[in-house]
């Protein structure tokens, strides 16, 4: 089973929930898919064993065979190729790899067969372990834009027979969609404030559109109002757990400390969360 932990709003406690949920399971794979700002490793402190570079194919022009026809620049939707005319000579083609989305159009459609593709690194995927947890995360190089590509490669390492927890990036734009596509269940983490509620409604739109069964965890309950809970009740969205605000939790988080392996009350909260996830997922399966 693949469980994603997501949130419309950043800072609601996605990583806290994902990390501690993983800690109460006997055997689990943990994927941090926030490739722009991964930080689950700050809590799980995995022993990284395998590092693989993520490369995308970018075009390289064979100037000898290139006729300067400009077809490549014409078919490039991202302006990653520019044709520079030289009076009395063959036009020159410039490649701008940082703008390239690796779609392959230019090399496929070049009439002279003058474009080949070469690998360009955009980030890394690191794999390791911490206790019973198989840990993976992606780290995108600063200045790159192809986060969905790294996220897809990362998800390619999901084992079909494992319980997998995916810590998703915040928000609702395309990296989030790439992270939660194809998962069996999505946990949406919110806080009981107007910001949390507003961004929860955005996240609910996403999971409903993608037809993924989901439930909500209300984090920092008590530090806010009941609007989020009322919303869930009105929308018939299961509330899988309510984690009461406790200054002590905030302090532990600030030092990179985990919770479920250090306190029996916390372990109980996350064990019950997992049971609720399974229950809601089974009900959803029966209904479909």
């Amino acid at each position: 089973m693949i469980i994603a932990v997501a949130s419309g709003k950043g800072g609601t406690g996605k990583t806290t929930v994902a990390v501690n949920l993983a800690l109460v399971l006997e055997k689990v794979d943990f994927f941090d898919s926030d490739v722009e700002e991964p930080n689950a490793h700050l809590f799980l402190k995995p022993d990284i064993k395998i590092t693989s570079e993520v490369a995308v194919p970018v075009p390289v022009i064979d100037a000898g065979n290139c006729t300067g026809c400009g077809k490549c620049a014409e078919v490039c939707a991202y302006h990653a190729l520019a044709v520079i005319p030289h009076p009395g000579k063959k036009s020159q083609v410039l490649v701008f790899p940082h703008l390239c989305h690796a779609c392959g159009a230019c090399s496929l459609l070049c009439p002279a067969g003058a474009i080949r593709e070469e690998a360009r690194n955009i980030g890394v995927i690191e794999e390791g372990e911490c206790g019973n947890i198989r840990f993976l995360h992606g780290k995108m190089n600063v200045g790159e834009v192809l986060s969905p590509t790294i996220i897809r490669r990362l998800k390619g390492k999901v084992r079909p027979d494992a319980v997998t927890i995916i810590d998703a990036p915040p928000g609702t734009s395309c990296p989030v969609v790439a992270a939660i596509r194809g998962v069996d269940f999505c946990v949406l983490v919110t806080e009981p404030t107007p910001f949390g509620l507003h961004d929860l409604t955005l996240a609910v739109d996403v999971v409903r559109q993608m037809k993924i069964p989901f439930g909500v965890v209300i984090n920092r309950a008590g530090l806010g109002n009941d609007a989020a809970e009322d919303y869930c009740r009105a929308e018939k969205i299961p509330v899988l757990a309510k984690i009461l605000f406790d200054r002590e939790i905030a302090v532990r988080y600030s030092t990179g400390d985990t919770l479920a392996d250090k306190s029996p009350e916390m372990a109980k909260i996350f064990t019950e969360l997992y049971q609720n996830i399974c229950q809601v997922k089974n009900e959803a399966d029966r209904c479909s």
């Binding site: 991202y78 302006h79 990653a80 520019a82 520079i84 005319p85 410039l94 701008f96 703008l99």
Partner: peptide, 16 residues
């Protein structure tokens, strides 16, 4: 307002 590639397109506009 181009999000990317403004420099390239502007350069091509000017170069001609």
């Amino acid at each position: 307002e181009a999000s990317g590639g403004a420099g390239i397109q502007s350069a091509q506009l000017v170069a001609s």
